[in-house]
Design a protein around this nucleic acid. Structure first.
Lengths: 221, 221
DNA sequence: ATATCACATGTTGTATACATCAAAACTTGA
DNA sequence: TCAAGTTTTGATGTATACAACATGTGATAT
């Protein structure tokens, strides 16, 4: 990931986004433009532009004359974003139920099968990866490219906080069952039910909310 | 609007956004960085950064080595965005019905009253302005700042296409009635009904869709 | 001892010069 | 006359130098 042959702004942006989403930079951490310029073998200018693009998608916050930092969301900000995310994903599921082509449904089922394998082997990293693939497949099946892009953007924004959340075996198994219900409803064309199920799957409430708050308090220390 | 005392990037961004949304630059039109630098009394650098920020919010498209242009959306892209917009606004209405404080409801009612005055005087420009104020008031009443920001962003993106759409007296009156229904449902706390009504108010379908397509075809000429 | 002010420092924001590349214009050959 | 290759042109993308400003540090006065 350090530096490719021609590190264009787009490449830098993607590399930094992946690094942040994958947790290689932690929320609140400062991103030093000069160090990054060194790493990517270019000047500060493309780095600066990449960072500003990331600010636009909400992943970093540029504080004037003070530095750019990985966005660190507090509990209220996170709650707001999860609320919107639940609605966007519900919309994806609703549209997918109405519009998904057989190959798209097959892709979703394949992702679900991969999740299942990860659960049986107990590989939580693999589950994490396949889980996002599952959701992305549903975004795509909505056949609304703009909606898909918005969902991807918001998902990237929330990913750093979801990462360590709920590595408990119980949650993985529960999540898998919810996935199955969602797939079946989409395949059956039950748009409203699929949307409702997805909303419940994504929204953070009850114990999961308190788990999230606890993990944030821990990260702050 | 030309140039203020200290044209910081944020100011330039806002000025350009307003100019685009207000139709002073038409979709597809090229934005010349040097000319803008002259107008704002600065170098190309801040202009460039402002344009990139606008690209992030979808208002302009930067085509590498070819220039930056006001985003010109085709019919399919517009349909996708209106579909998402309808859902976001429906969500705003739902949350507003559940959470709006009395002063917030009063603000919405005031905006609606202003719309009504515009209809009686037949001032379609004023109606246009007050109509956006009405919608913005509902975004704010959702008490979800992130949702509000997303709705504002998408609304700015669609504004250039809504502008000349439906200046017919019939549509204005119909729109006003729908507004009234929405306000009443929000005030009554009827969350689901308010959401459904708002979705229908925003979504483009039937004759309105064909009107939109026609206006785009006309603008292309 | 403490609070305030001035200054030093390091960072980002802006200007400008240069490199790079896409499209158009021109030349040359058939 | 037309087509293909080449050159030219004009724009954007990048590098670097400089300016502006927020923060931290130290001195001084109370």
């Amino acid at each position: 990931m350090p530096h490719a042959q021609k590190p264009t702004v787009q490449h830098i942006r993607d590399a930094l986004e992946n690094a942040i989403v994958d947790g290689k930079f932690l929320p609140g951490e400062r991103l030093d433009p000069e160090a990054l310029a060194m790493r990517f073998g270019c000047s500060r200018t493309p780095i600066r532009e990449a960072l500003q693009a990331l600010e636009g998608s909400g992943l970093v916050s540029v504080r004037a004359k003070r530095g750019t930092f990985v966005t660190k969301l507090g509990v209220p900000e996170l709650a707001e974003r999860f609320e919107v995310m639940a609605e966007l994903e519900a919309m994806c599921a609703r549209l997918a139920a109405r519009r998904a082509s057989p190959p798209e449904i097959e892709t979703i089922r394949a992702a679900q099968a991969a999740c299942m394998r990860a659960v049986t082997t107990g590989d939580s990293d693999a589950y994490y990866y396949e889980n996002t693939a599952f959701h992305h497949a549903i975004y795509a099946a909505s056949r609304n490219a703009f909606l898909e892009a918005e969902a991807l953007r918001l998902q990237a924004m929330l990913q750093p906080y979801r990462r360590r959340q709920l590595q408990s075996r119980g949650r993985m198994k529960r999540s898998l069952e919810e996935h199955q219900t969602i797939v079946d409803l989409i395949a059956a064309g039950e748009a409203d039910a699929a949307a409702a199920e997805m909303r419940n799957h994504v929204v953070i409430q009850g114990d999961r909310f308190h788990d999230l708050v606890a993990s944030i308090r821990m990260a702050d220390a």
